[in-house]
């Protein structure tokens, strides 16, 4: 039962990844692309967690935590760039 649920879930998350990628490609404005990147990394965390449950391995947790932290920092840095035109003054 769990394996069927996991297959459904992984399919849904992959579809979500494709939709975010679509938004990343068509834009049309810069904030749209940054938002798409933000959504992409959160979807990646979802995929990693599902993979961890599927393979019954605890190792993917560290990767998920690191992606969460780095992704947030990246989004904030990109927003600062959009607001000011440069990151380090």
């Amino acid at each position: 039962m769990l394996s069927i649920a996991l297959i459904i879930a992984i399919t849904l998350v992959c579809a979500a990844l494709l939709l975010s990628l679509l938004r990343l490609l068509i834009g049309p404005d810069e904030p749209d692309r940054v938002l798409a990147l933000d959504t992409l990394y959160i979807n990646t965390i979802a995929l990693l967690v599902l993979l961890g449950i599927l393979l019954d391995s605890d190792l993917y947790f560290e990767a998920a935590l690191l992606i969460a932290m780095m992704g947030f920092v990246g989004t904030v840095a990109l927003c600062k760039y959009l607001l000011r035109g440069d990151i380090i003054e």
Binding site: V13, A15, A16, L19, S20, R23, L35, A36, I42
Partner: peptide, 9 residues
């Protein structure tokens, strides 16, 4: 998660 990305697209 899927609905969130659907909204985005």
């Amino acid at each position: 998660t899927f609905i969130g990305s659907l909204g985005l697209a």
